[in-house]
């Protein structure tokens, strides 16, 4: 079967790849492009581990066909740190002990980033709502919620 060319921006860098039609963005990122930060948990859109940001919106990469992403700007957890400096969310997750096995963490970070991009000073309920599509086995969620609230506060202090 003929391969399909696909081209998009990934974390600010141009990427181009030939893929089979029907390849999910998750598999294209992990197996073709080599960005393994999105995790394949359920492969059916119920766990949130594969979450990425496409043109500013939170998307499940396991339910997104790569061929629909031509020309898109995609952000993954790999793109959060800049020059070895952790993103405020990553820093907050570390400080709050908000990760254990780490499998849900990239998806949590993506969901939290979209929230803070749209709502810089969220309430606790807004954080819970934003994370509600992502499940976590280890942490009991509370440390993650606290980390997102802390990152929001540190962002607003930096902006002030």
């Amino acid at each position: 079967m003929a391969k399909i060319p696909v081209q998009f921006m990934l974390n600010g860098a141009e990427k181009a790849e030939f893929i089979d039609s029907g390849t999910t963005l998750l598999n294209a990122l992990r197996d073709k492009i080599g960005d393994t930060s999105p995790k394949g948990g359920c492969h059916q859109g119920t766990c949130g581990a594969c979450s990425v940001i496409i043109d500013g919106e939170l998307r499940l990469s396991c339910l997104t066909l790569a061929e629909t992403c031509n020309g898109a700007a995609i952000t993954t957890t790999s793109g959060l740190s800049q020059g070895g400096v952790l993103h405020p969310l990553q820093r907050a997750f570390l400080d709050a002990f908000a990760t254990q096995c780490g499998f849900c963490t990239p998806g949590m970070l993506m969901a939290a980033k979209v929230l803070l991009d749209h709502t810089p000073d969220p309430s606790r309920d807004e954080v819970v709502e934003a994370l509600s599509g992502n499940i976590c086995r280890c942490t009991g969620y509370e440390p993650i919620i606290q980390a997102v609230l802390t990152a929001a506060r540190s962002n607003s202090q930096n902006a002030a």
Partner: peptide, 14 residues
């Protein structure tokens, strides 16, 4: 057999 049927609480159920 999957997270549609297996009840896995989210951050709203604390």
């Amino acid at each position: 057999t999957d997270f549609n049927q297996y009840l896995m609480p989210g951050p709203g159920d604390l």
